[in-house]
Simulated scan of single mutants.
Amino acid sequence: MTIHLELDAGVALVTLDHGRGNTLDTATCRELVLQLGEAEAAGAKAVVLTGTGSMFSAGVDLLSIDEGGAGYVSEFLPALSDALLAVFGFPRPVVAAVNGHAIAGGLVLAAACDHRVLAAGPARLGVTELLVGVPFPIAALEILRCAYGTNPLPGLIYSGATVPGEDALARGLVDEIAPAEEVLGRARELATRLGELPAEPFALTKAQLHRPYHQRIAENRVSDDDGVERMWCSEAALAAVKSYVDRVLRS
Rank of each mutant, 00 (worst) to 15 (best):
A170E: 14
Y148H: 15
L131I: 12
V87E: 07
H214C: 03
R20D: 10
A27H: 07
I157W: 08
A9Q: 11
V134I: 10
G195Y: 05
A180V: 09
N151Q: 13
V134Q: 04
L77N: 08
R92W: 00
G160D: 00
H210G: 00
A112D: 02
D82H: 09
L62Q: 14
G89Y: 04
E182F: 06
V48C: 04
Y72F: 13
L85P: 04
D61C: 11
V248P: 02
D246I: 00
T205Y: 01
G106V: 12
I103E: 12
H210W: 03
A104R: 04
V241W: 07
E181T: 08
T28I: 05
G51L: 02
L204S: 11
T52S: 15
G195E: 03
V108L: 00
V228C: 14
G105L: 09
A191F: 05
G10N: 02
L194C: 07
H210V: 11
V60L: 15
S64M: 09
G71T: 08
A83K: 01
E196A: 15
R116T: 03
V11P: 07
V174L: 08
A236V: 13
P212T: 02
G21T: 11
P91H: 13
G89F: 03
D175L: 07
T192M: 08
I177Q: 01
C29T: 06
L169N: 12
G51W: 11
A187C: 01
A123L: 10
R30A: 09
A111F: 02
P78N: 03
A123Q: 15
G100S: 13
D66N: 09
P212V: 03
A120K: 10
T150G: 01
D246M: 08
V245A: 12
A207C: 00
A97I: 10
S223A: 15
P78W: 12
P198I: 00
L184Y: 06
G53N: 07
G43N: 01
L63H: 14
L84M: 13
P137Q: 02
V95D: 06
V222S: 13
E189L: 07
G185V: 04
V132N: 10
A46G: 04
I138R: 13
P78Q: 03
R230T: 15
